[in-house]
Each structure stands twice: as C-alpha cells, then as structure tokens.
Write a protein that binds this DNA or RNA. Structure first.
Lengths: 192, 192
DNA sequence: GGCAAAACATGAACATTGTTCTAATCTCCC
DNA sequence: GGGAGATTAGAACAATGTTCATGTTTTGCC
C-alpha cells in the first residue's frame, strides 16, 4: 500500500528530509481542509503552511488532486489499521457494525482532514471488511459479501458525514441511526 | 420557491430576453457538469457555451457557487414536482420508496446536471416527503417523521450516486439494493 | 576524504480561471 | 419618443494552478 498507486504521486521521497517535508505538506493540506473545505485548499496555502516552496509540491505530487488523493490514502490506511486493531476477537457482524462506526467517529474527531475519504477509498474499506467477514465469521465466498458491504459502507459514510455537518462532535442521533440502518439492512442482505 | 433564496442570486431577471439567457447559462452549466464534473465548470466555459459574455454571469449570480446552487435548485424543483405527480393516491410508505427511487433514476438519466443536488437540497426533499407522509398516511406529527426521512434520503442519495458511478444507466443491483435498504430501515424507524 | 550522479530545493514566470468595473446599449412604459 | 432602469459587453485585475531552469544537498562509491 506504499508504492505509487495510479498516478497521483510524481516521485516518492527517498531521502529522510524529503519524507518529512512530504508529511508536512499532507499535514498542511489536512489542516486547510478542516478549516475551509476543498475550496480553501490552494497549493500556495499548503506550501506556506508547510514552509516549503510551491515547486516542492509539484516535485512530489502530480497536481493538486494528487495531493488530496495522497492525503485520502494516508487517512484510509490509518482507518483500516484502527479497524484491524479493534476487530480482534469479533466473530459476528452486529458487533462489527458498532466497531466500524465508532472508529469512524473517533477518526473524524481526531484525525485532521478525515473528510477526504472518497468513493475510491470506500471500495477498499468494503473489500477489507468483506474479507474479514469471510475469514472469521462466514464461510461463504468473499465475492457474495463484497457487494452488500459496499452498499453498507457507502450509506454509512454519507450518514456519518451528515452527523458531522449537524454537529462538530457528530450528532448522536444520526450516529445511532447509522448503526440502526446498517443492522436493519445487513440483517436482510447477508446470508444467514 | 422562486424568490432570491439566501444569496446565491444577485439579481433576478425581469426582462424576457434575460430570462432566456439565464436559462441558457444554467443549461450550459448542466452540460459541463455532466461532461467533466465540478472541475470542468469554469465560468468562461459556461459563458462561451451559453453564448453570453462573462459579465452576464456575474450580473445574475453572486459567483460560480451561486450558479451551481441555482442549477441545483432548478433540478430540485423538477424532482419535487415529479414526485408530487407520482404520489397521487399513494397511501403507504413502501410504495413511496419505489416511487421516489424510480423518479430519481429517471431524472439522473434525462435531466442534465442532476448530480448537483447537495445536502442543503436533501433536507428539503426529506421535509417534503415527511409532510406528505404526515398528511396522507400517518396522523403522527411531522417532526417525528422528518429525522428518519432525512436519514433515508441521505442514504438513498449516496447509494444512487454509487449506482450511477458504476454504470451510466444506473447499476440495477445498486438501485434494487437502495430500495431494499430503505424498506429495511424505515420498517424499523417509522412509527407503526 | 573526494567526486560524480542522483535527489532535492527554490522561486520567478507563464497560463488559466474567478471576479470586478465602467461604459455603451437595449426594453419597457408613460 | 424619451427617459429610467435593466441589461450587455469585454477589457482589466487578482488569485490560483502549474512549469521550468538553475542552484544546492545528499548519497553511493573509490
């Protein structure tokens, strides 16, 4: 999950100092996104905040979108790692629902720029969860689980974004309803 | 639903010719959005496509966002009108689910730029559906229906966007699952 | 240590886009 | 037909995305 995926990255940093500077750029982008949304994400603002010249951004990232994609990927990896950690010992899916939603809420509260988890990333989450489900819970083939999981993840992402639009800490009602909706749907959609 | 809402519109057209030109601008914006997403929506491109000078856009709209908002509102009104038409005689909510999803799919296929129905618009849809439900189906107070409806609309919007990312005509599996998910959730969330 | 090659830093310069402004033209109504 | 308000028109300014040539630092190697 480290190699240059697709084409959002132009060069990967190889020296120590540049690894740090790339992280500074991602941190700066995350902070700007939290403050003013995607519209506030200007390349010059990122450069100023990270204390690097504009050229450095384009040295490592294809363009502004590539920078945002890289940030999304970094957040995705943190999210998956957090889920993997929490999933220890979980053997039935209703517990999984609580788990994943709670981790999402926690990330939204603590990880800057977590809003940038696009549809491309959602698919990865769905596949990861389907794999876990197939491995430890249901012996069914993973393919049959992936599509319902994709539906669940997409819906959950939208509802939790709604929860955080309503309240900075995540409106408790919408968080609770997200879990309720996921349980109601998966109870019908997953093979028994 | 016509007066200048909030502040996305700078002046409303009063002469006949300018009403037509404003519609040309919205049509051009819709076409560009369908072709290349929000990134392809440049004010100059809209002006060229609508065969008006840039100044005219800023004469009627506050800024580029105001133009997109106005398009979203126009699409929302068509959507609500379509729903209202189909809702004649419907007296229980499962039929409503099919109806609203089908109308959404139809609009996505035929109305240019329908992708631009933001969260602000979703709330209006939810309130409209809650009102209908309160009026003709359940005697319960509308307030108790609005929040579950908001959840349902937000989830449906996300899932149908997924369906249309997968296939230009809307992936049938995801469309069917959207209905399934809505039924499963509303069956639990609505008062019986 | 010293040296060549690769990686990196830097910011001026260019292209595109968002937005404003002032002057000229057109519509509508008395 | 005349005048006030509505509208057209596009040049001009500002901000942003992006590239590029040049200079500096790090790395691997003798």
């Amino acid at each position: 999950m480290i190699g240059a995926v697709g084409s959002s990255v132009r060069r990967s940093p190889v020296q120590q100092r540049s690894v740090e500077r790339v992280n500074q750029m991602l941190d700066a982008a995350a902070a700007l996104l939290d403050e003013g949304g995607y519209e506030a994400l200007s390349t010059r603002a990122v450069a100023a905040r990270a204390e690097v010249p504009i050229g450095s951004i384009y040295h490592f990232f294809r363009d502004k979108r590539g920078l945002a994609d890289a940030l999304a990927r970094r957040n995705l990896e943190r999210f998956l790692a957090g889920i993997e950690r929490r999933l220890e010992g979980v053997t039935h899916w209703p517990a999984m629902v609580d788990l994943v939603v709670d981790e999402y809420v926690e990330m939204k509260r603590t990880v800057p720029g977590f809003a940038v988890v696009d549809f491309r990333e959602n698919r990865v989450v769905a596949e990861s969860l389907a794999a876990h489900l197939a491995r430890r819970i249901s012996p069914a083939d993973q393919a049959a689980l992936t599509r319902p999981m994709t539906v669940a993840v997409e819906a959950a992402d939208a509802l939790l974004k709604l929860a955080f639009r309503e309240s900075p800490e995540g409106d408790p009602y919408y968080v609770a309803e997200t879990k309720e909706l996921l349980r109601a749907y998966l109870d019908r959609a997953l093979p028994h």
